[in-house]
Design a protein around this nucleic acid. Structure first.
Length: 468
RNA sequence: UCCCCGAUAGCUCAAUCGGUAGAGCGAGCGGCUGUUAACCGCUAGGUUCAAGGUUCGAGUCCUUGUCGGGGAGCCA
């Protein structure tokens, strides 16, 4: 069909021009004067195009008068200056064809307010609403900005596997992948399930991170990034966690943690600027209906410097704070949510990059710092914390010294043989390198103000929920 | 997984001390109207999440379960 997107009609077409548009009716208002007003949305932008359909249309009485919210139509007509308020231009229909009827009695998306909880139960129809259309467009813009940012800087896009054999990537519980019959799996002599007879001849899992798999490409080709789905089988029931989510993981060659933090800050600012620039109508809607601070916050961040401080400095600030804690800050323990919020929302009012966490609470692959004057060991890790969402990025400089890495693996109780290829990178031409992971959905949450992560991904997967 | 809260009409919610289950929106019909969160009138619409229990009587109290929300942990 040779149609014009409503976005183009509203921005690029002039009064007097003809066009054909197609979309879904949002609301219908019939006038006894012999004409009807349709609000038409086709997803190309937030705005609706008002269609004026009058009784000169041959199907006016038979079809137009029976249209309701949700019907799909194709309209050919001419752009005219609107006589009413609320829109500058509208389309005078010359021909209106109904593509799909929509029973108003049973259609779940009524022209009224719905709760996000209810809309989750109709996830296949919620993209027809203002909110979820806007979320989808912002999410898309963020994804294109991610690729733009890295491609402009010469990063290579690398596809890491979804299915992995390493069962100790260190980032959480994993989903097993198997084609064995769960009711009657083959058993070995000890009565254990014999995964040697499974599809891959060994135990396999869905990936919890592409990092380990992308490092070899970084240590061969330079700056790289991976961007794909990630799976965590944690029983997490929060507005910030999904069992299936998307993660961007750049890996910088010949780089340390300072380079990494600088990249993370530039990266987030690039994304926020892109969204501000290209999704103005959607953001205006979020700012009015979802979170009245979202525009101010995004603009403020795009222009301000992120705060940098070490874990030890953060502990000092928290320790001196004049308030009571559910978890009193203590060097050696991880930052609690209340600590993170205090830093971002009450102390600095902007993103904070916390670096150099105690080695004992971080994974084996992070670069080990020299002991401080008190003999405490830290690693070159960083978390980028933002107001409300909390941790949006986690990253580190990687340990590239073979002996130190092997020592850390022993301390963590890991078997070197399982990581022979990972250790090879340090054995043969090892280089300092660093990287981070950005949770895409948390980024979408931050840009839209949507409170629940289940509402920024089309079909959320969470414990006990894989509908649609 | 732990703590707290909730589940009533298609949707959003109300229902006093345990005593006849209501409103708004939406829908249908009619009126009015270059309308646009339209407006006015009428009508239909209920296994009060499920299963037990207490009681003359349960939407309301008790138990268990399911689902949802908020907080925490795990993290992105």
């Amino acid at each position: 069909m040779n149609r014009t997107l409503i976005q183009d009609v509203l921005t690029a077409r002039k009064i007097g021009e003809s066009a054909t548009v197609a979309g879904w009716v949002r609301t219908v208002r019939h006038s006894k004067g012999g004409f009807s007003f349709l609000s038409l949305n086709d997803g190309s932008c937030f705005a609706q195009l008002q269609i004026v359909a009058d009784q000169s249309l041959p199907n006016y009485e038979a079809e137009v008068l029976h249209l309701s919210a949700g019907c799909s139509v194709v309209v050919a007509g001419e752009l005219v200056a609107s006589q009413g308020k609320g829109q500058a231009v509208e389309m005078q229909a010359r021909e209106l064809r109904v593509l799909g009827q929509c029973d108003a009695e049973t259609y779940p998306i009524q022209p009224k307010h719905h709760s996000f909880e209810f809309l989750r139960t109709v996830a296949h129809l919620r993209p027809r609403t203002n909110t979820f259309g806007a979320v989808a467009r912002v999410r898309n813009r963020i994804c294109s900005a991610i690729h733009e940012f890295f491609q402009q800087r010469g990063f290579l896009y690398v596809h890491t596997p979804i299915i992995t054999a390493s069962d100790c990537e260190g980032a959480g519980e994993q989903f097993g992948v198997s084609t064995l019959d769960p009711a009657a799996p083959p058993r070995d002599e000890k009565g254990q399930v014999d995964f040697a007879q499974d599809f891959f001849g060994r135990r396999t899992y869905l990936t919890v991170s592409g990092q380990l798999a992308v490092e070899p490409y970084c240590c061969s080709l330079g700056d790289v990034y991976t961007f794909g789905p990630t799976f965590r089988a944690e029983n997490s029931n929060t507005p910030r966690h999904l069992a299936e989510f998307w993660m961007v993981e750049p890996e910088l060659a010949f780089a340390d943690l300072d380079d990494d933090a600088r990249l993370a800050e530039d990266f987030l600012k690039f994304i926020f600027s892109a969204v501000l620039q290209n999704c103005a109508d959607d953001l205006k809607f979020f700012n009015e209906r979802v979170d009245k601070t979202i525009l101010e916050t995004l603009q403020g961040i795009a222009e301000s410097e992120f705060v940098r401080l070490s874990y030890t400095e953060a502990m000092d600030i928290l320790g001196k704070a004049n308030r009571t804690w559910d978890y009193p800050p203590k060097w050696g323990a991880d930052l609690q949510t209340e600590h993170e919020r205090f830093l971002t929302e009450e102390t600095f009012h902007r993103p904070v990059i916390v670096t150099d966490y105690p080695a004992a609470i971080k994974p084996f692959y992070m670069y080990l710092n020299d002991p401080d004057e008190q003999g405490r060991r830290t690693v070159r890790a960083m978390d980028v914390l933002v107001p409300k969402t909390g941790e949006i990025i986690g990253g580190s400089q990687r340990e590239h010294r073979l002996d130190v890495l092997e020592g850390r693996m022993s301390d963590c109780g890991l078997n070197r043989d399982d990581y022979w290829w990972y250790l090879d990178l340090r054995r043969y031409g090892g280089i300092p390198h660093a990287g981070f992971g950005l949770g895409l959905e948390r980024c979408v949450q931050f840009c839209t103000g949507m409170a629940n992560i289940r509402d920024v991904i089309p079909y959320p997967r969470t414990p006990r929920n894989a509908e649609f």
